[in-house]
Amino acid sequence: MTLPSLEAINLTKKYGSFTALSKLNLKLEGSKCVGFLGPNGAGKTTTLKIFTDMIRPTGGMALINGIDVNKEKKKALKSVGVLIETPEIYGSLSAREALSMIAEIKGISRASVRKSVEDVSELVKMKGLLNQKIKKMSKGMKQRINIAAAILGNPEIVILDEPTSGLDPRGMSEVRDIIKDLKKENRLIFMSSHLLSEVSEICDDVAMINHGKLLAYGPIEKIVEKFSKVGAVEVEVNLFRPVTGDTIDRLRNIKGVRSVKKVDSKTVLLQVIGGLKGQEEVLSRLVRIKLGIVGFKQSSSALEETYLSMFKETV
């Protein structure tokens, strides 16, 4: 079985003399979730729109599973779920009709359209509102329908542009869970977002873009290590015994630990180098020296710190 892939080759988009996207080269492959990060106006939506036939590139190619989306759209998007910005839906249709339309377009067999529509709306908690007219729905409800439409037909690749925008906190968390669920099967998810905690929670890799240029692409912990101010990943360690000066000394001596900072009586923050492998080694040493370790977790703000040090200014 071939791996799902998205590939931008010298992808360029100009608006008059303004270059929104400049020779972007990026290949995403395999079943994973890739976060697409960058400040406002960086070119994220532009990139995702080119991949979904909403705009045409000025130069370069956008390949989905090796197929040029601008040449063979139907074939390229055959197994892709798409949500770009916040689409509107024909207001007089009910949610059920709107989703059935997309299900039929995607080619879900007649016999299972009804069930597929009900299944996806259950996921986005809209099953009870399927017969309501779209024009009577709130922004967040419509966005749930949009997400349901994107995942209809069990797509192999999912392209999402700020999928949780407009949702209430519960909605955001539900959508995060849906995306995590989507990850479980052989699926490639490419998702732009400004919510860094969301990205570090869901995604494996990140692509960082600014002024239409790719700045970095790779696994989150590699990017964090390479680009954060401290050049290491921060790990939060919880102990069940109070932290003493001796504990800190012993932690400092572990290979791969760059620095140790006491947070409170039972928590310390370690700066660890060597990526995930480094973290694994540090953890196994920690266990061996029996300090009373009960928790070991990559700091959730690591990505945010990296982001802030990478993008010094907005726009």
């Binding site: 024909y90 879900i108 995942i151």
Partner: peptide, 28 residues
């Protein structure tokens, strides 16, 4: 969230059928 249970594989219809779908829903 519950597990995704739709195992459906899709076969994209031909353009003639697509036109009919668009026609029906836009007409509605």
């Amino acid at each position: 969230a519950q597990k995704l249970k739709f195992e459906e594989k899709t076969i994209v219809p031909n353009s003639f059928y697509h036109i009919t779908i668009m026609m029906l829903y836009s007409f509605l």
